[in-house]
Amino acid sequence: MNVRIWLIVLLLAVPGIARAQGYAGLGGSAEGFTVPQPGYAFQFPQDHGPHPDYRIEWWYLTANLKGEDGRDYGIQWTLFRSALKPHEVEGWQSPQIWMGHAAVTTPDKHYFAERLSRGGIGQAGVTAAPFEAWIDEWHMRGSDPNVVSLSANGADFGYDLKLEAKGPFVFHGRNGFSVKSGDGQASYYYSQPFYAVQGVLRLSDGDVAVTGQGWLDREWSSQPLAADQSGWDWFSLSFDNGDKMMAFRLRGDRGDFTAATWIDADGTTTAIPDGSVAFEPLTTALVAGRDIPVRWRVTLPDRDLDVEVSALTPDAWMATRFEYWEGPVQISGSHSGRGYLEMTGY
Results as ranks from 00 to 15, higher is better:
238 S>F: 00
287 V>L: 05
53 D>M: 09
327 G>Y: 00
40 Y>S: 00
152 A>Y: 04
150 L>P: 03
93 Q>P: 03
313 T>R: 06
260 A>K: 06
83 A>W: 00
19 R>A: 09
102 A>V: 10
12 L>W: 11
305 L>T: 09
216 L>G: 02
33 F>P: 06
55 R>I: 11
119 G>Y: 05
101 H>C: 14
327 G>E: 02
95 P>C: 13
36 P>E: 09
14 V>M: 10
92 W>C: 02
100 G>W: 06
177 F>D: 05
80 F>I: 11
165 A>P: 01
93 Q>G: 15
295 R>L: 06
326 E>V: 08
227 A>L: 12
84 L>D: 07
61 L>C: 07
73 Y>I: 07
217 D>V: 12
112 F>K: 02
96 Q>P: 01
318 M>W: 00
63 A>D: 04
271 A>T: 14
36 P>G: 05
108 D>I: 02
186 A>Y: 04
326 E>T: 09
117 S>L: 00
239 F>M: 04
323 E>S: 14
236 S>A: 14
320 T>H: 03
283 T>N: 06
66 K>T: 15
60 Y>T: 01
127 T>F: 04
224 P>W: 06
251 R>K: 14
119 G>P: 03
315 D>C: 00
335 H>P: 01
198 Q>D: 15
231 G>L: 04
144 D>T: 14
293 P>I: 02
43 Q>T: 14
338 R>M: 09
241 N>R: 10
61 L>P: 01
193 P>F: 12
7 L>H: 12
41 A>P: 00
203 L>T: 10
184 G>T: 10
75 I>G: 00
263 I>E: 01
238 S>T: 05
130 P>H: 08
287 V>G: 05
284 T>E: 13
107 P>D: 09
158 G>E: 10
9 V>L: 14
256 D>E: 14
181 S>A: 14
71 R>Y: 08
250 L>F: 11
218 R>D: 02
69 D>N: 15
183 D>E: 14
203 L>M: 13
11 L>Q: 09
130 P>T: 09
168 P>E: 05
5 I>W: 10
32 G>N: 05
333 G>T: 04
284 T>D: 10
170 V>K: 00
244 K>V: 02
263 I>H: 03
28 G>L: 15
184 G>P: 07
110 H>F: 15
110 H>E: 04
100 G>E: 11
238 S>Y: 00
301 P>G: 12
22 G>A: 09
47 D>L: 14
119 G>A: 07
199 G>A: 11
201 L>T: 08
320 T>E: 04
222 S>R: 12
46 Q>Y: 06
190 Y>P: 01
49 G>D: 10
197 V>L: 03
71 R>K: 15
189 Y>M: 01
59 W>L: 09
191 S>D: 03
256 D>R: 07
150 L>C: 14
119 G>K: 08
244 K>D: 02
239 F>T: 04
292 I>Y: 03
45 P>R: 05
278 A>G: 07
279 F>H: 04
23 Y>V: 00
333 G>W: 06
140 M>L: 14
13 A>M: 13
17 I>R: 09
109 K>A: 15
257 F>Q: 05
190 Y>W: 14
61 L>H: 13
331 I>D: 00
277 V>H: 03
5 I>F: 13
